[in-house]
C-alpha cells in the first residue's frame, strides 16, 4: 500500500490550499458573485427599503427602455467622459513618457513632479479645481484672459462641464506616464539604433517601434482606464451635483440618487444591470480585438 500515504498527503495539502484561500472565497462569494446575482434579482422587483421587495417582472426594464430618457442622457455623459479622459490620458501619457525617457539625468525630477498629483487626496483636489474653474476669479480664466480669451463658465456650462472634468482628470496623468515610462525602459535601445540606421525619423520610430512594443501595456491601461472611468461619481457628486442641465449626471450618480435618495432600489438595480450588460461585452470585445491584432 505505497499509495495511501501520498494520497492523504495530497489531501492534506489540498485542504491547506482551500484553507489559505478561504478569506478570498468568502469575499468573492459575499462581495462579488452574490451581489451580481442579487442585482439581477432586484432588477425584477420594486423595493423601497421599507416594505419587502415585490416582483414586477420586466417592468423596470420596460420603463428604462421606453419611458426614461434621463438614463440615456446619463449613459451618453458617462461614455463621453470615459472615452474622452482615457483617450487623452493614454495619448498624452505616451507622449510625455517618451519625452521623459529622453530627459536623461533630469528624468527623476520631472517624474516626481508629474506623479505628485496622483497621490493627493481626491476631495481636496476637487475643491481646488472648483476654485480654478471659477468663471471670474478662477486661475484658468484669468490665464485665458491674458490672451484676450473670454473663458467659458466651465462647471456652470452644460457644454464645458464634461471637458472641465476631463481636464481635471489629466492632472492625474502622472500614473500612466510612470507606467509607460517603465515600459519604455524595457525596450532595448538596439531596436531604435537599428531603425535609425535605416533612416527612420523620430516620429516613425514612435509609431513603428514604441507603440507596438508597448501595445500590451497600452491595451491594459485602456481597458482598466475605461472601466475605472465608467465609475465616475465623486467628481459629479461634489463639484456639480449632476448639473448644469444634467450634463454631468453620470450613470453612477444616477444609480446613487435613485437607490439612496429616491430609494427605488429595484429600478436602480435595473440600471446597474444594464450598465453591466454594456460594459462586460465591451471589455470582452476589446480583448478580442487586441488578440486578433496581436496575432499579426
Amino acid at each position: 500500500m505505497p499509495k495511501k500515504p501520498k494520497s492523504s498527503f495530497w489531501k492534506r495539502k489540498s485542504l491547506t490550499g482551500y484553507l489559505f484561500a478561504t478569506p478570498w472565497i468568502i469575499g468573492l462569494v459575499c462581495f462579488i458573485i452574490g451581489p451580481i446575482f442579487a442585482s439581477f434579482f432586484l432588477s425584477f422587483t420594486t423595493y423601497d427599503g421599507i416594505n419587502p421587495p415585490k416582483l414586477i417582472g420586466f417592468m423596470n426594464y420596460k420603463i428604462l427602455f421606453t419611458l426614461d430618457p434621463s438614463f440615456w442622457k446619463a449613459l451618453g455623459n458617462t461614455f463621453y467622459y470615459m472615452f474622452g479622459s482615457v483617450f487623452l490620458k493614454v495619448l498624452l501619457g505616451l507622449i510625455f513618457a517618451v519625452l521623459l525617457n529622453n530627459a536623461g539625468k533630469f528624468m527623476g525630477i520631472f517624474r516626481t513632479i508629474f506623479f505628485l498629483p496622483v497621490v493627493l487626496p481626491a476631495i481636496p483636489v476637487m475643491f481646488l479645481w472648483m476654485m480654478l474653474f471659477n468663471p471670474s476669479s478662477g486661475l484658468l480664466n484669468q490665464f485665458l484672459g491674458v490672451f484676450g480669451i473670454n473663458g467659458p463658465l466651465w462647471l456652470n456650462s452644460p457644454t464645458w462641464s464634461k471637458p472641465a472634468f476631463i481636464l481635471m482628470s489629466l492632472w492625474g496623468i502622472g500614473g500612466i506616464i510612470v507606467i509607460f515610462l517603465a515600459g519604455l525602459q524595457g525596450i532595448s535601445t538596439e531596436l531604435y539604433e537599428a531603425a535609425e540606421l535605416d533612416g527612420a525619423n523620430k516620429i516613425q520610430l514612435f509609431w513603428k517601434i514604441t507603440v507596438p512594443m508597448l501595445r500590451p501595456v497600452i491595451f491594459f491601461n485602456i481597458v482598466t482606464g475605461l472601466i475605472g472611468a465608467s465609475q465616475v461619481f465623486t467628481e459629479a457628486y461634489v463639484m456639480t451635483g449632476g448639473g448644469p442641465l444634467e450634463s454631468t449626471t453620470f450613470v453612477n450618480l444616477m444609480i446613487y440618487k435613485l437607490a439612496f435618495k429616491d430609494i427605488q432600489m429595484g429600478y436602480a438595480s435595473a440600471i446597474s444591470v444594464v450598465m453591466f450588460m454594456i460594459l462586460v461585452p465591451l471589455t470582452v470585445l476589446l480583448f478580442r480585438i487586441y488578440r486578433k491584432q496581436a496575432e499579426f
Partner: peptide
C-alpha cells in the same frame, strides 16, 4: 442630513 436619514431608513 437628508441622505443620511434616507439611507439609514432604507437599512431599517
Amino acid at each position: 442630513y437628508w441622505d443620511k436619514l434616507r439611507i439609514s431608513t432604507a437599512a431599517g
